[in-house]
Write a protein that binds this DNA or RNA. Structure first.
Lengths: 224, 224
DNA sequence: CAATCCAGTCACGAACGCGTCACACGACGC
DNA sequence: GCGTCGTGTGACGCGTTCGTGACTGGATTG
């Protein structure tokens, strides 16, 4: 049976017991500042309260996107009222959509089931394979012909982003914002160093060089 | 500042003035049957009304994909109601996604900003094909019968410009300004060297010579 | 046929863009 | 507190790219 992980920042007011419906088992958990407590294999849905006063909601949203374990979660912002400006900021912070609170358990389930059945395959596949390269998103491990590639967090994110956008020239700006590093602003030339380190790590695992430089534009992950 | 072109087929009911937000400048324009009126360098987003009775929406969608100038636009279909069959046809016609209308300006901006900020991977392959020649705008790679043509940046831009203006004599001045090299002023004879280098690169990939010289005028990209 | 015009090509210098290194700073663990 | 690790930045050097002038050969015109 498929498991769907649901995380909430705020209190739901109702019980957070696991719940079975249709083909799916829903597990509920509280989402603290350190990310999710437990993590079961399966799609993740996060409902983040807005909490306007200290912008904790937006911060949480960015943190989810930056954290490799939750980067592919579907993030729904829970707004207190329907303010267009808030919606925009929520989406810019990385949220996938929003609802107007307060949240009830049925509202959560309705939303998840609705998007789920609409085939909203927003979240990336947890596993990626292309030729000799394989990336296990859950284990945070990349391999070349089965040989582990020793990657530091940033390099893994970079490789992941390339794998999600194959055969497409990515500018340095694309890569910076793609890794969620708009703040503080990063020198574009730093991307060159990322690329160099990633290439070296792949090479050290006996791999080739799937990253092609496109002069004066950026880089491409060549997939055939 | 980055410019984002937004085109709409229907009326928005609100003003279509240019709009500045964050790092981007949004320019709005009406999208007629002959394609966009004006075209600024930058990403393009088209919102196409469904208009069920004469299938004009689908036709517009296909036309956008076929037109090289708009082939890489992000096309959003505006449905009147959430009909799964319509959604499927929209996506098959080349749309990237869909919304349920009616459209408001804030809805448009929300959608663009959301996808923009997440580095929305484009599903549509930006691609141009003419006989043996194919140009992948996303990977910035040209091929002749599948054989990669090794092009330097300027040569690729040149080929791209020719492909965007086939069967039309382009003066050297057209080419210079078409590649955005007005400053500093460039000697027109330099274009001859560009042409030579481009021809040689195509030939090296086993290709023919699609570039015909029009004496004392310029050059044509012959397409059939 | 001669004079002229025009396009193709080559070699060269200068500017540009990229890869890489060492270093500094902060985070983290022992 | 100290050592280690991860990461961003400035600087340096090398290879690539590109505009230009000169030369050549073919086309055009009278």
């Amino acid at each position: 049976m498929d498991v769907i992980n649901i995380f909430l920042t705020g209190e739901l007011g109702e019980s957070l017991d696991d719940f079975v419906h249709d083909q799916h088992r829903f597990t509920f958990d509280h989402l603290g500042p350190d990310g999710p407590r437990r993590l079961v294999e399966g799609p993740m849905w996060a409902f983040v309260d807005w909490v306007m006063d200290d912008l904790a909601g937006l911060e949480m949203c960015r943190r989810l996107r930056a954290d490799l374990r939750t980067a592919d979660a579907h993030v729904t912002m829970v707004l207190e009222e329907d303010d267009p400006e808030d919606r925009r900021r929520a989406l810019r912070a990385g949220a996938d959509d929003y609802v107007i609170g307060p949240l009830t358990r049925t509202a959560v389930l309705d939303r998840v089931l609705a998007l789920q059945s609409r085939g909203a395959e927003r979240h990336a596949t947890r596993r990626f394979e292309a030729g000799a390269l394989s990336i296990d998103m859950a284990a945070l491990q990349a391999r070349w012909n089965g040989e582990p590639i020793m990657l530091r967090p940033n390099e893994f994110r970079l490789l992941r982003f390339f794998a999600e956008n194959p055969n497409r020239v990515l500018t340095r700006e694309d890569l910076i914002s793609g890794l969620g590093k708009r703040e503080p602003p990063i020198d574009e030339r730093t991307v060159d160093v990322w690329i160099g380190r990633l290439r070296r790590a792949i090479k050290a695992a006996g791999g080739g060089n799937p990253l092609r430089t496109v002069r004066s534009i950026g880089y491409v992950f060549d997939l055939n």
